[in-house]
């Protein structure tokens, strides 16, 4: 393992506002659930190392804002993605109906080289709510949709009860690896504060 080069997988999580994108990411990465998340503004990412078969890979998971207003930032966030996770709330029909839009939006903005075979994943979240009695999208309906979009793998999850979260992300990592290419991982420009502070005091001329 030590001789292999480390692989970075970029995963994007998309879906309507409030379906549980941040919760899923935090459950997977930090093993924590909170009822007190704020709305995600823009996007954020966390990383986690996972073992896929005999390889150690680093998953860089991008959590995005659900409001369409932030889709203008999409190009920057989606570029170089290895897998796209579409999340909906099984208790909210609207969030299921949006999946097509999210998928199309991703394909347009990320423009992967082989859109037909790009790995997606669908998660039906919040299955814990009301013991499943308030759900309005059946597993069958979701699976039918997934099948119609090129057999997208589907999991029913609860970020709250940690149901299927690990399994789903393992599968995400596996599928993303299949799609692995030698492309550079895109990272947005960052500003380095640390390097400036050390020499400023000596080199400044004013």
């Amino acid at each position: 393992m030590a001789t292999r080069k480390r692989t970075l997988l970029k995963v994007i999580i998309l879906g309507d506002s409030g379906v549980g994108k941040t919760s899923l990411m935090n459950q997977f990465v930090n093993k924590k659930f909170s009822n007190q998340y704020k709305a995600t503004i823009g996007a954020d990412f966390l990383t986690k190392e996972v073992q896929v078969e005999d390889r150690l890979v680093t998953m860089q998971i991008w959590d995005t804002a659900g409001q369409e207003r932030f889709q203008s930032l999409g190009v920057a966030f989606y570029r170089g993605a290895d897998c796209c996770v579409l999340v909906y709330d099984v208790n909210l029909l609207k969030s299921f109906e949006s999946l097509s839009n999210w998928r199309d939006e991703f394909l347009v903005q990320a423009s992967p080289s082989d859109p037909e075979n790009f790995p997606f994943m669908v998660l039906g979240n919040k299955v814990d709510i009301d013991g499943g009695n308030s759900r309005v999208v059946s597993e069958k309906r979701a699976k039918t949709w997934c099948a119609s979009k090129g057999d997208i793998p589907y999991f029913e999850t609860s970020a709250k009860d940690d149901l299927n979260v690990d399994v789903a992300f393992q599968c995400i990592a596996k599928n993303a690896l299949k799609n692995e290419t030698d492309e550079e991982i895109y990272l947005p420009d960052t500003i380095d504060f640390s390097s400036g502070s050390t020499h400023t005091s000596s080199s400044c001329s004013c």
């Binding site: 506002s17 007190q36 998340y37 709305a39 409001q67």
Partner: peptide
């Protein structure tokens, strides 16, 4: 209105 009603409960959640 839907978007606002999703965000109000998430305002200063703590």
């Amino acid at each position: 209105l839907r978007q606002i009603s999703v965000d109000c409960p998430r305002t200063v959640p703590d």
